[in-house]
Each structure stands twice: as structure tokens, then as C-alpha cells.
Amino acid sequence: MSGNGRKLKFHIFRFDPQQPGDKPRMQTYEVEEAPGMTIFIALNDIRAKHDTSLQFDFVCRAGICGSCGMVINGRPTLACRTLTSKFPNGEISLLPLPAFELIGDLSVNTGKFMRIMTERIEGWIHANGEKVNLDSLEERMDPDRADEIYELDRCVECGCCVSACATKRMRDEFLSAVGFMKIARFEMDPRDKRTDREYYNILGNDQGVFGCMTLLGCEDTCPKDLPHQNRIAYLRRKMLGAARKVAASAPARIGSP
């Protein structure tokens, strides 16, 4: 933990869309660095001492809840676990995550986006209406499979992958990596009874996995190091297979390559 009392310069995006006449601008604040200081601590310090109108979102401040995604010196990441000591020249610029509705300053509406995404992909276990008896032994699962599902279930819906996605910036309706990772998670879960055909209906177009330009900003910025590249490639192959089957059953509609 370093901290030499140096002065940090925060250049922060300011805009209140509800304030008539307000225009987006950058504002600079000076903060004295403290040992172990994170962007979370610094922003609260700025709000309490310099500018009480500054909007930002934190909840867990421990890198767990995904609330505090923002663009820090050009890179979308979680602010709460970013130490100020990481920036040798003490200049830190903060912008709200692009691709989400702006609430004000650094606060964006990821919640609305994620709810719509979950509804769109039906991001829940489709058990085909089986009624479970809660008194009986649970259905068994291969221990490795459980661990693999957990790997993908670690997504915190912070939105960094969405903000870092060039395809999403070109196509507003693009599902984005967060949606792909969710599908990949349910697809490998034996409790979800959906078929490839059903996943194809969600993913199998340009707004889905075929629209991805494979620039992999998602892989580069994911704070949880989820295997985006690997899973997107997997889903593409899988969906290509599904597409062939669909084509075989209804050639006139899909056409052949």
C-alpha cells in the first residue's frame, strides 16, 4: 500500500440530463492521496468535501456486486477496487460507461439493460414444468459440471463488456457478451431443458452471436476474467450446427451457404 500524500487530479465527466440547460463537461478535482486509497474512497471524499452534487454508484465496494463500472483512464472497469496508486502520474479521468442510459455524471442505468437482457434470453432455468418435491433428495449433478457452471455464473452484470464492445456501439439491439455468457451458462446446465433450436432462436442472427466482430473488448475488460473468447466461439459453432439443422428442415427460409 503506497501513499505519499501526493495530489491526485481527477477529471470527471459531469452532466445532469434533468437539469435544463446543463451541458456535458469535464470537471477537475484535486484530492490528497491516502494510503490504500481506491476510486471509491476518493469519489466519496470529493462528494463530501468538494461537490455534493456528484453522482456515482457503489454498493458492496468490494468488487462483488458490479455497481461501479466506469471508464477509468479510457478503460471500463470496477472503480471500487481500483487503487489510485496504480496511476503513476496521479491523473485520473472518469467517464460513465457508454452504451447505457445516463442517469447523471458517472451513474448509468445498467439495471434496466440487464433486466431487458434477462427477459430477452429468458435467463432462468427452463425445467419444462417438472414439479419438484422439496422433501426428497435433490437431483444429482456431476461435481465438475457444478464447478464449470459456477465459473460462468460469476458474471456480476457490471456492463464493462457491453461498454467495451464495438459491435454494440454500431448495433443498438446487439445482445452483447453479457447475454452470450448467460446463454453459455444455461446451455451447459443439465437442469435447463432448452434445445439448441431454442437457443438458436435467441442467438442465431446478427443481433446475436453471428453479429460479433470478435474484437473481444469483452474478454479484455471483464473484471471477473470470464472466458468470453472461448464461449463465444463455442456458441457460434453450436449455433452453426443448429442453423444447419434448421436449414435442413426448412431450406427455403434459411437458404444454403
Binding site: W124, V132, E138, E139, P143, Y150, D189, R191
Partner: peptide, 18 residues
Amino acid sequence: PKAIRELSHWGVPWSRVR
């Protein structure tokens, strides 16, 4: 125990006995 089994049904990837 019922709560945990229901959650399993809803998708929690509980770690399993090997």
C-alpha cells in the same frame, strides 16, 4: 433443507460431493 433444494432447482450450482 427444502430451501436449498428449491434453489438447486432454480439453478444455484451448489458444490457437490465427489
